[in-house]
Computed example of a mutant assay.
Amino acid sequence: MLSSALAVGAHAEPGGCLKYGAAGAVGGHLADHHSVLGATAGCVVGMYKRHEYRKEARMKAHLYDQEHPGAKGSYEQKATAYDVEHSTTPGAMTPSEPSHPAQPPAPAAAPAPAEHL
Rank of each mutant, 00 (worst) to 15 (best):
S87K: 12
V45A: 07
K55F: 02
R50P: 01
E56D: 08
L37D: 08
H33W: 06
T80I: 10
E76L: 15
K55C: 03
K78D: 05
G28L: 07
L63Y: 05
Q77M: 09
A61G: 06
A25S: 12
G27R: 07
A41T: 11
L37S: 09
V84A: 15
H68K: 09
A25E: 04
C43M: 14
D83H: 05
A39M: 12
D32Q: 13
S74L: 13
T40N: 08
Y53D: 13
L63I: 07
V36N: 04
A71H: 13
G42C: 02
D83I: 02
H62E: 12
R58G: 04
E85I: 03
A79S: 02
A79M: 00
Y82T: 01
S35Y: 13
G73Y: 02
A81D: 12
V44P: 00
G27Q: 10
H51Y: 14
G46F: 02
G46C: 09
G38A: 01
P69S: 06
Y53I: 06
A57D: 09
V45F: 06
L63G: 07
K72D: 12
A81V: 04
H33V: 12
H51W: 10
V26T: 10
V44I: 04
T80Q: 15
R54V: 14
K55E: 04
H86K: 00
A25K: 01
Y75V: 02
V36I: 11
E56Q: 15
Y48G: 02
Q77K: 11
A41L: 10
